[in-house]
Simulated assay, not measured.
Amino acid sequence: MLILTCPYCGVAADETELHPGGEAHLTREGPESGEEAFHDYLFLRQNPKGVHFERWRHSHGCGKWFHAARCTVSLEVFGTYPAQVSEPPEDILSTIDARRPGWRDTA
């Protein structure tokens, strides 16, 4: 079972208390973008085997959105962090580098 710690309220919640929101750190396309860019934003997602950054909502808790870094193969969680950032924090990236050397080469 997947257990993630909410970075806002500190509760370690299992996946039944959370709601997945898909890939994290997407560039939102606005009305001025072309059809192709908007199509890509809506439908094209990474689906890696390995390290992945995702959005989650603590739906049965504080209700806030946050990001999680985890391995899609082993369900190992590298860390969680607030959703108001545009890229993963350095401490999360360092943790992944230590546990999965070379992971950036396959991303």
Rank of each mutant, 00 (worst) to 15 (best):
R57S: 03
D91C: 00
E76L: 13
H39W: 08
T27P: 07
V85Q: 12
S33W: 13
V85F: 07
G22R: 09
T106P: 03
E76W: 05
C71G: 09
E15M: 07
L75M: 11
R57F: 10
G102L: 03
F78K: 06
Q84I: 01
H58E: 11
H58Y: 13
Q46K: 10
N47P: 01
K49G: 05
Y8M: 04
G10D: 10
F66R: 05
V51N: 04
C62P: 10
T27Q: 13
A83C: 10
L18S: 05
I96L: 14
D97L: 07
D40E: 02
E87C: 13
P82E: 11
P31F: 12
A107S: 06
W65H: 01
R57D: 09
Y41Q: 00
K64T: 05
V85P: 06
I3S: 09
E35G: 13
P7C: 06
W103D: 04
E36P: 00
R28F: 14
T95D: 15
C6D: 11
A37Y: 00
H67Y: 13
E36K: 11
E87W: 04
V73S: 05
H39M: 03
I96T: 11
G22C: 12
S59V: 15
P82I: 01
G61I: 14
W56Q: 15
R99S: 11
V73P: 07
L4T: 10
G102C: 01
A37M: 11
H19E: 08
W65K: 03
L42A: 10
F78I: 13
I92Y: 09
P82W: 03
L44P: 00
L93G: 01
M1T: 03
A69Y: 07
C62R: 10
S59C: 07
E90T: 10
L44E: 10
A69I: 04
A98D: 14
I3K: 15
H25Q: 00
V73N: 13
V11E: 15
D97A: 12
P20M: 04
H39P: 01
L42T: 00
P7G: 09
A13F: 01
G63M: 06
Q84M: 04
Q84A: 06
